[in-house]
Amino acid sequence: MEVGRLRALLELARCGTMAAAAEALFLTPSAVSQQIAQLEEEAGVKLTERIGRGVRLTPAGQALVGYAERVMVVLDEARSELAELRREIAGELRVAAFPSIASAVLPETYKALQHAYPRLEIVLEEFDPIEGLTALRSWRTDIALIDDLSIAMGDSRESVEVVPVAEDALYIAVAADHALSKRPSVSVADLRHETWAIESTWSGFGDILTNLCRRAGYEPRINAKCRGFEMAGAMVAAGCSVSMVPGLRLARLPAGVTWVKLRPEVRRKIYVAYRLGERNHPTIKVFIEEIVRTASRLLG
């Protein structure tokens, strides 16, 4: 059975639709459908069945998914052992990271590894934690930086392992002349009458904010959904919105914006994640060692 077809089946099992699986694999839905059809022909049995707009695995499909996951782990282990035997840290390493941790630690991590291993080519790509974990599981990246606010850590351990990198807290960003700017701390309840600017590219951020506000007894009024903090910061500086920002970003807030502690404190743990079969891959190991060391030096 061809490995690419097994990957298509794995993504379909995770995503539930041909369209979502295709997006995760950077393929068209028809290409994924064709791969599944070819896999069914090889297996000699139906692996999926239609349910409305979605797809459900048959018992045979569910059984094959279990084997496919084990095959992928073994292939990763084989690549890791071959890399160890070459005794060289070289080639391409793809890293997915969300903006606040990426800007805080990845440049120094990159520089240190480039100096130590000139034949190692690190390629960084910005993903939010959920997207990064999806990319890792579908072999589109080799490393993903994730956090436990966006991802239930129990779920993330199904096919990957994680190593702690840093801890961070969330703060409230307000205009420098805002009435709340002089307070030592604010609660979410204090912000009941504010409008919010959020970074919509972090898919978990809106849910976190909404859940916090609902616990305080109200629905947040969001007047700006921004692709990055540049627009959100401008809205805050102008007094049009408040925002929620990670502590990692406090040193780089734009002019006219200040921060206030959130009460009670909301913290998150940040991890570096890698696939289960690559725990002994030398390139993965040196990257993890260096990012943990860099984070400890810069953030500890």
Rank of each mutant, 00 (worst) to 15 (best):
E167Q: 13
E11T: 07
S187E: 07
A90N: 04
M231T: 13
R86H: 08
E41L: 15
I36Q: 08
F127N: 04
M235V: 00
V123M: 04
P59E: 09
G300P: 05
R7L: 15
R183W: 09
S296T: 13
W196A: 06
I143H: 11
L276I: 10
I146E: 02
R5W: 11
S138G: 08
S200E: 12
D177C: 11
V174E: 10
A144I: 09
K111E: 15
L106M: 12
E88P: 05
R157A: 14
V3Y: 13
I101G: 03
V260G: 08
V55A: 03
R157L: 15
E131C: 01
V242R: 07
V74T: 15
R275H: 01
M72Y: 11
A238I: 03
A37Q: 12
A60T: 01
G228C: 06
A83C: 11
R183F: 06
G4H: 11
G132Y: 00
L298C: 04
E167I: 12
D147C: 04
R140T: 01
L47T: 06
T17P: 05
R119V: 00
M231A: 14
T48W: 05
A189S: 10
S296K: 15
N280R: 15
I101C: 01
I270Q: 03
P220S: 08
R7E: 14
L170S: 06
E23L: 10
K182T: 14
E131M: 08
E290V: 07
A68D: 00
A144T: 06
R227C: 00
V55M: 09
A31N: 09
Q114T: 14
S103Q: 13
A96F: 04
L82V: 14
L25G: 01
D190T: 03
S181D: 07
V160E: 11
S100Q: 08
L27Y: 11
S181V: 07
P164M: 04
T210V: 11
V65L: 02
A176H: 10
F26D: 14
W196H: 00
A234T: 08
T109S: 11
K285G: 04
H115R: 15
S241H: 06
C240H: 14
P184H: 05
R249L: 12
V123D: 10
C15R: 15
D207A: 14
R221V: 14
P282S: 04
A19F: 00
V257G: 02
Y274W: 10
L25D: 05
S156P: 06
M18A: 11
C226Y: 02
